[in-house]
């Protein structure tokens, strides 16, 4: 079985701080990490490899430094790594990104495609389903578990707001996985040693099945009109008082606001 896992390098957004004076993002010193949901997806692929035997290929689209997360994936147990990188991909929104990824995947042999539900820098959850449509494959999103059945279909568990759904998928498909589904394994020591001598394949736009005008900024229907730091709310009162006084303060405020 050949499994392709789509991963993305993202800034660790939990580490981003706002400059309280200028109101701008402080990006220096913010680490780049493998997107958590994608790591969950990779873990699912590696578990399927452990259970059924599979060849796991990781692919990412990004700048050359995204090499780092591909090597992390190799050290976790992936068999092959592909870096899709080209200036022609720059400025892509989710539609153009999913189109480029689909263009690369079309040239490959695969039985299953796994992606994370969403990336923590954009939080859109759109690339997985959009890519599935470009490839003409069914999709299941918000996946927390997947297993092969005896008759080679896939039994998938999906979490919605109220239920855990069980879905059976016939044939190839795209799954988008939640980080909370699996505790991802650590890189093995020998894996880390090896990962740096292994090849990461570099693919440019010429190598994949795409029409150039559908790539990057040109191929993106949405444009950023403007972006700005979130307006900071004026902080209210802050009190450092005894517990008794604190209780009285809260009660009087709740009365004043007609909450009680």
């Amino acid at each position: 079985m050949n499994i392709i896992v789509c991963i993305k390098q993202v800034p660790d957004t939990t580490e981003i701080k706002i400059d309280p004076v200028k109101g701008t993002l402080i990006r220096e010193g913010v680490p780049s990490i493998m997107n958590p949901d994608d790591k969950g997806g990779l873990e699912l692929a590696l578990r399927m490899k452990d259970m059924y035997g599979a060849n796991v290929t990781v692919i990412t689209m990004g700048p050359p430094q995204a090499d780092l997360i591909l090597r992390e994936a190799l050290a976790m147990g992936a068999d092959r790594a592909i870096l899709l990188t080209d200036r022609k991909f720059a400025g892509a929104d989710t539609l153009a990104t999913s189109y480029a990824l689909a263009g690369a995947i079309k040239t490959m042999d695969y039985d299953l495609i796994i992606a994370g539900r969403q990336a923590i820098d954009g939080d859109t959850a759109q690339v997985g389903p959009e890519m599935a449509e470009h490839l003409g494959l069914p999709q299941v999103s918000y996946v927390v578990d997947a297993q092969l059945t005896d008759h080679h279909s896939l039994m998938v568990k999906k979490e919605d707001e109220e239920c855990v759904q069980t879905l059976e998928v016939e044939g190839k498909c795209v799954l988008t996985v939640l980080a909370s589904a699996y505790q991802a394994r650590y890189m093995s020591v020998s894996g880390i040693m090896e990962a740096y001598s292994r090849e990461v394949e570099i693919w440019t736009a010429d190598k994949i099945e795409v029409e150039e005008e559908k790539l990057g900024l040109k191929g993106s229907p949405t444009k950023v009109f403007r972006s700005y730091p979130k307006a900071l709310k004026t902080p209210g009162e802050l009190h450092e008082v005894s517990e008794e006084e604190a209780v009285e303060l809260i009660v009087s405020k709740l009365k004043e606001k007609h909450i009680i």
Partner: peptide, 23 residues
């Protein structure tokens, strides 16, 4: 932007080849 809307809207955006803005 529920588990249904966030599954359906990108699928359609891709089929219609149009833009979609999340959340």
């Amino acid at each position: 932007a529920t588990t249904i809307g966030r599954d359906l809207a990108p699928r359609l955006a891709s089929r219609l080849r149009t833009g979609l803005t999340a959340d």
